[in-house]
Nucleic acid binder design. Structure first.
Length: 337
DNA sequence: AACGCGGGGTA
DNA sequence: TACCCAGCGTT
């Protein structure tokens, strides 16, 4: 039977000893409230720690419990999430709180299977809640841990493919059998965040370098190539009527529940009053804003909003940014964060 | 088993 | 610009 160095008790012990000294004090590490942990995990999906800090703190003040979040309106929830992106996460978290509070009578799920039934909770997030909140052994593999494990074990399978992912999760599962799940999962993740960096890993500072099998850490993990970027031009119009601004509610999948500027199908003769370039996923969007007279016909999704109330309206970030460029709207957009 | 999500920060 | 990030849901 193949013996992995990760099974030696020395490895987790060395890692945890390092983590206790060098691990960051993050707000979601200072609590064992499963709701707070769940909030942090949803926010941290595909989003870096430094970005989440501000949103997490404000969210926990606005919605300190499953009950307060379950009772909130979708508009309030999306407004609190505004700027964090991937808004499906906000709706998932909202629905998860409603399921826990009403359907589960506010008893927080405490098994992988139950947690995965919550919207927005997959294998990773379920394991994170179980280990961080309940200190129960559960493997987790995020981008950090995938990188650490692939290097420690010199795994050269593509981690974007199912076989490669299976290999990594298998190692993580062996690792999770050792005690202190909260500490060991946190430590593994933190090693990836602080030492075992994607580029220029700090191997000379690594507390477990003697266990590391790869001769070439920077080549790992092996991942798919990124698709080429596609350039897109999008035109919108600025319609002001006295102290009101016309916005459009998104009803499709993209930005559902968020307001954007009303879409303009053709390019007007006069130049835009504001423009910005907005890279997102595999697109680069060139967004143009044209000033037009009050439109003759409004769509059902169109609605006038008082400019003084814009701070409480969830608006997609690029649209909020291009509106800030226009000038007189700045104060209303920024008030209330 | 891929792919879309069309976000945001950093080197 | 390219790349990365405490992934998930859908097809």
């Amino acid at each position: 039977m193949k013996q992995f160095s990760i099974e030696c008790t020395d490895f987790p012990d060395a890692l945890i000893a390092w983590f206790k000294v060098h691990g960051r004090k993050l707000p979601w590490r200072a609590t064992r409230d499963p709701y707070a942990i769940l909030v942090s995990e949803l926010m941290l999906q595909q989003t870096q720690v430094s970005t989440v800090l501000f949103y997490f703190d404000r969210w926990m003040q606005l919605f300190p419990s499953t009950e307060s979040l379950a009772r909130a309106t979708e508009n309030e929830v999306l407004r609190a999430w505004q700027g964090l992106g991937y808004y499906a996460r906000a709706r998932n978290l909202h629905r998860a709180a409603q399921v826990i509070f009403w359907e589960l009578k506010n008893r927080f799920p405490d098994s992988i299977a139950e947690l995965k039934r919550l919207p927005g909770v997959g294998e990773y997030t379920a394991g994170a809640v179980l280990s961080f909140a309940f200190d129960r052994p559960a493997p987790i593999v995020d981008a950090n841990i995938a990188r650490v494990i692939s290097r420690i074990e010199d795994i050269r399978e593509n981690i974007d493919r199912s076989t490669g992912r299976k290999t990594i999760w298998g190692v993580a599962a062996r690792y999770a059998r050792h005690g202190a799940p909260r500490l060991s999962n946190s430590a593994l993740m933190e090693l990836g965040a602080l030492i075992c960096l994607p580029r220029n890993p700090l191997c000379k500072l690594c507390p477990v370098r003697s266990y590391c099998r790869t001769p070439d850490p920077e080549s790992l993990p092996v991942r798919n190539n990124r698709p080429a970027v596609t350039h897109v031009i999008e035109n919108y119009y600025l319609a002001l009527d006295q102290n009101r601004l016309l916005l459009q509610m998104n009803l499709g999948r993209r930005w559902r529940g968020l307001w954007t500027l009303p879409r303009l199908s053709e390019t007007p003769p006069d130049g835009p009053v504001a423009s910005l370039t907005h890279p997102v996923t595999r697109f680069v969007v060139h967004l143009n804003l044209y000033k037009i007279a009050v439109p003759a016909e409004l769509l059902p999704s169109h609605e006038w909003h008082f400019i003084k109330d814009l701070h409480s309206v969830p608006i997609a970030s690029p649209h909020r940014r291009v509106l800030e460029m226009v000038g007189p709207l700045q104060a209303s957009l920024r008030a209330g964060g």
